[in-house]
Design a protein around this nucleic acid. Structure first.
Lengths: 231, 231
DNA sequence: CAGTGGTCTAGACCACAGG
DNA sequence: CTGTGGTCTAGACCACTGG
């Protein structure tokens, strides 16, 4: 075979061998030093190629044991979670935002427990609609932890969505997300302009800064919305 | 400040500066050589730390221009797409699989166009139910491209799901996935043991080997299913 | 053109874990 | 104890791209 010299060409060759079943799932492959000799490059270069593949779940690497092809290739799909306005604009549509209501109230049990906050403490709740080309795009129902983000009380969120304001002004270290399907209620149907009981894609996210919850938001997308990604 | 010596400690320090707004979104940070001097380590070490952060979307790096904190931190959520049996077993539940029907027939227009195959060509269609602790877990509706996987005709898929058989036997290079919410039909309600029009989370995937489609599958999860991930 | 990140090298030492 | 991957170094050259 030819002698790859860059880490990408090494990676390509390794991928080819996996794809062509020269190295089968679960099998060990030669160690880095041997591969470096075979490919005529430095071990560092081989390491870079293999480490990258391991991060993508195609290889299992363990000290002393060695490197093997992942027995069950774990497919990792990456979703980019972006500000809704940017998502709409990327689609070439006109974005509009409207605040529906705003309240300073204690959260429900579900919200307070998801956010690990005292149920008695008042939080800021915002509901808003995002539109694309004047059609409903997504409905946002958000709770903000005022103990962590006191400044939110001074914002009216009339023109800038909490979505964007928080991202630009409040740091976070971690987020937990889940996706599910829910039926449209009377209230959501009205705002998303769809029939009651329509199936809607829902994204719920709790954002944390260290161990303190910053905000929890449920986004309901308009009927037919698809979340795309690839492997 | 202290002098980090490993790439992870360099990364931690960079993360801290971003988090504490010492380096603000959109701002340029010192170049690799300067940081290496400041931290008392090799430039390679700084490079490793910054490259990793850039891959995670926290930094924007461009030759000559330099490195800056990403103006809009793009949150990347990674979903692990695994074999359904393993997912169920990981939950500590008993897995069961049942083939519902199997047909050798031409695909619908929707399927043939998604898979870029000639609509006249017969394909293998399998519908099956995955159960967890004897309750419906997910309903699978799959089309297999026999031009790419002729061997599938010799499998009856009575006991091994196409899901697993394909993963273990047929290589692929790419997959396109989308998630959406759909309403349950009479047929799906019957198999998932739910009311008609219940909102269901649907995952549709088309798998490719180079530029030839291998299989297309729609998985409908039982009501209430949540797809979890974190940032 | 020149400054920046991107990569390769050869060698070294270390951390971990299998035997 | 020993083989493996994990990492660091110092230096070098390259590729891209902004000015």
């Amino acid at each position: 075979m030819t002698s790859p010299r860059t880490w990408q060409s090494v990676q390509d060759e390794v991928l080819r061998r996996i794809h062509d079943r020269e190295w089968k799932p679960g099998e060990f492959i030669p160690n880095e030093a041997d591969l470096a000799r075979e490919f005529g490059c430095a071990r560092t270069t081989v390491n870079r190629a293999l480490r990258s593949l391991a991060e993508n779940g195609l290889l299992d690497r363990r000290r002393k044991a060695g490197t093997r092809v992942a027995p069950r290739p774990v497919a990792k799909a990456t979703l980019d979670i972006v500000v809704i306005r940017h998502e709409v604009e990327r689609l070439g549509k006109a974005y509009a935002y409207g605040l529906i209501d705003r309240a300073h109230a204690p959260p429900s049990i579900a919200v307070s427990s998801s956010m690990s906050v005292d149920q008695g403490k008042k939080m800021l709740r915002l509901r808003a609609l995002h539109k694309a080309d004047n059609a409903p795009y997504a409905l946002e129902d958000r709770w903000i932890n005022l103990a962590v983000v006191p400044g939110a009380l001074n914002q009216n969120f009339d023109t800038v969505s909490a979505n964007e304001w928080l991202l630009e002004n409040v740091p976070y270290t971690r987020g937990d997300i889940d996706f599910s399907a829910v039926s449209s209620t009377d209230w959501t149907s009205q705002h998303l302009a769809c029939a009651k009981d329509t199936a809607l894609l829902a994204m719920t996210r709790v954002t944390w800064d260290q161990d303190r919850s910053v905000t929890m938001v449920q986004v309901l997308f308009a009927p037919g919305h698809r979340l795309r990604t690839s492997l």
